[in-house]
Amino acid sequence: MKIVVCIKQVPERDARLRIAPDGRSVDSAGAATEINESDQYALEAGLRLAEGVGGEVVALLLGPDGAEEAIRRALAMGATRAIHLNDAAFQEGDASANARALAAAAGAESPDLILTGLQSDDAGWSQTGVLLAERLGWPSATLIMEIEPPADGRIKVKRELESGWFQWITLPLPAVLTIQSGIYPVRYATLKGIMGAKKKEMKKMAPADLGLDPGQVGAAGRRVEVRRLYVPEKSAEAEILQGDAATAAATLVDRLQKEAKVL
């Protein structure tokens, strides 16, 4: 079984974000990064499936040079090889432009399954996986909590619905699944995995390698544009209690008793 897992590099969760001078993007120079959380779960799900039924996991990432760190990590976790869509033309794409590039690259691999995370922790469009399914003409399912090994050309998965409801469905392969965080505990890269990752194939690709015109990807191919990125004005400000831990704790108890009257 051949599985392509799309991963994205995002700022680390606690990273201090700086708005770039263009006022439309985040200045990522020197910022700590990680593989997007739900993509880590997608990778884990892909690796488990491949280990169970035999096969390979190809990590696919669109991003600049610095995103190689995320690819190395995916290879260290167990991906067989990686494809890095890395070209100036890919920059500043929206979900639509990025999905066009990812669909071309993933489709060329003719996998049985493509996995993505549910949504990215930076842009948070929650569109990419489903967009690339439609571009490939494949069926898709989202918010996947469990995956059973495929049988008779179909795969059975458990979806999370709204209001505490769940659903078991089947869909024919090839298919795209977007993975919900928490599906399986994510493995750590072992030292052996980290050493082995250095020898694995990492193929860099540009639009022409995908049969795409540079005008179809990145800023030129987008349908949605971020005009301004800014720190939101806070509607209501919390009263921040000062002092060391003991002082702040004492003030809080006092406020909860006398002001909020909830203790």
């Binding site: 948070g124 005009r227 301004r228 990125l229 939101p232």
Partner: peptide, 10 residues
Amino acid sequence: PFQGKLNADC
């Protein structure tokens, strides 16, 4: 975006 840390006008 960014987990609600920033606003974006689109």
